[in-house]
Simulated assay, not measured.
Amino acid sequence: MSVGCLCIHGYTGSPEEVQPLVDYLKVRTDWEMVNPTLPGHGEDLDLEGHYYQEWIATAELALMDLLKRHDTIVIIGFSMGGMIASYLAAKYNITRLVLLSAAGKYVSLPQMYKDIVEMAVDAWKGMLDSNDLFKRYQKKMRDTYWFSTLEFMKCVQFTKPYLASVTCPVLIIQGELDGMVPRSAAEFLNEELDSAEEKEVVFLKQSKHLVCHGEDRDELFDHVLSFLVGVGEGEDEQTDR
Rank of each mutant, 00 (worst) to 15 (best):
S2D: 14
G4S: 06
C5I: 15
L6P: 03
H9D: 10
G10D: 06
T12R: 12
G13V: 03
G13M: 00
L21C: 01
V22F: 07
Y24T: 03
K26W: 09
V27I: 06
T29H: 14
W31Y: 08
V34T: 05
L38E: 04
E43T: 15
D44M: 09
D46Q: 14
E48S: 11
E54L: 07
T58F: 11
L61C: 04
A62V: 02
L63M: 02
L66V: 03
L67C: 10
H70I: 00
H70D: 12
H70F: 13
D71G: 15
T72F: 10
I73F: 05
V74L: 07
V74I: 15
I75E: 08
I76S: 11
I76M: 04
F78L: 08
S79G: 12
S79N: 12
G81W: 11
G81A: 10
L88G: 01
A90I: 02
A90E: 10
I94S: 00
R96W: 08
R96A: 06
L97E: 05
S101H: 10
G104E: 12
G104H: 09
G104R: 08
G104Y: 15
V107F: 13
D115M: 05
I116D: 00
M127K: 12
L128T: 07
D132I: 05
L133K: 13
F134W: 07
F134A: 11
Y137I: 03
Y137K: 03
Q138A: 07
Q138V: 01
M141L: 13
R142K: 14
Y145P: 02
F152V: 10
F152G: 12
C155K: 03
C155H: 00
C155R: 00
T159P: 10
T159N: 15
Q174I: 14
A185V: 06
A185R: 02
A185E: 06
E191M: 08
L193A: 12
K199Q: 13
K199V: 04
V201N: 03
V202N: 02
K205L: 07
K208I: 05
K208G: 15
D216S: 03
D216W: 03
D216E: 08
R217S: 05
L220E: 00
D222H: 12
D222I: 01
H223C: 13
V224F: 03
L225Q: 06
S226L: 04
V231A: 02
G234R: 05
E237F: 13
Q238T: 13
T239Y: 14
